[in-house]
Design a binder for these strands. Structure first.
Lengths: 85, 85, 85, 85
DNA sequence: AACGCATAAGTAAGAC
DNA sequence: GTCTTACTTATGCGTT
């Protein structure tokens, strides 16, 4: 049983956790980079990326939830006299 | 001229900057707390705060910009066959 | 009693909440702008703003909490053989 | 050549971009979930995740950059009389 | 002017 | 169930 802090058991365990996290973070970052590339490619084809991001968000919602949120927004907008479009 | 690092001129200058920043940050935090309180009060009166936040965001945009963004969103949604409502 | 959605009581109430929020947000933004200005001024005097931000964060912690966190960090760093400096 | 907005060429192109993005986002989210799981597992083994996150951040820096930043922080801390530990 | 960074907002999960 | 805390996304800012 060693007391060397660089080679103790707990340190080894901790290091394994950190390495697993770092590997996963690299993979996560790769995907994020890929996503950025796709948006850049779309932009190069004339698409507006901000609107694309809104579409991606909308497609995540199920249709019922989306309709409900929109209905509430319109009710509130009308109540304060805000013309949504 | 002192060399005491706790009382040198540069340190004094730096400290003045930090103090100015910290004062401003406190004031900024006070406003953030107040905003949270108003939302909480509105929620207590039956309003949906998520929709309120969307309204606040919409009111920040000038009407032309808002209309333009909405038109673009609808064009894109139609193009991919997404029913916005 | 009117049913005109632009002039109903609930709409008025909602609008008051929104206006209170917007006023507070403006004030909050003013402070944020001021903070940015102070950092810019400090930078113009040769200070490193990134380090300044770390100092501001450190000064927010009470000394005991700071010492405790630092001690834990050093323990962990030693355990994995990371030289903090 | 169709004018059906659900089947036009541009819409098809846009949809391809969105699908590519969504696939990548799913993969990215999977990694994020995995990372959360590892932290949770480490926490279950008695580790402090906040400190772990600081270690992960520190390990991202190359040693020279880390040493330089730390030296600057210490210089500044001394200048304002802040005891780092 | 585009790029990455840093802050801020919004969202979702977890603790009490 | 609420309320805080952490994570994710979005926006703006400074930089190159």
């Amino acid at each position: 049983m060693s007391v060397d802090p660089n080679h103790n058991r707990a340190g080894e365990d901790l290091l394994r956790f950190l390495e697993r996290i770092e590997t996963l973070e690299e993979e996560k970052k790769d995907r994020a980079d890929d996503i950025r590339d796709v948006y850049a490619e779309a932009k190069g084809n004339g698409w507006d990326t901000k609107t694309m991001r809104r579409l991606v968000a909308l497609r995540k919602l199920d249709p019922d939830a989306r309709a409900e949120q929109q209905a509430l927004l319109e009710t509130y907008a009308k109540a304060i006299g805000l013309d949504l479009l």
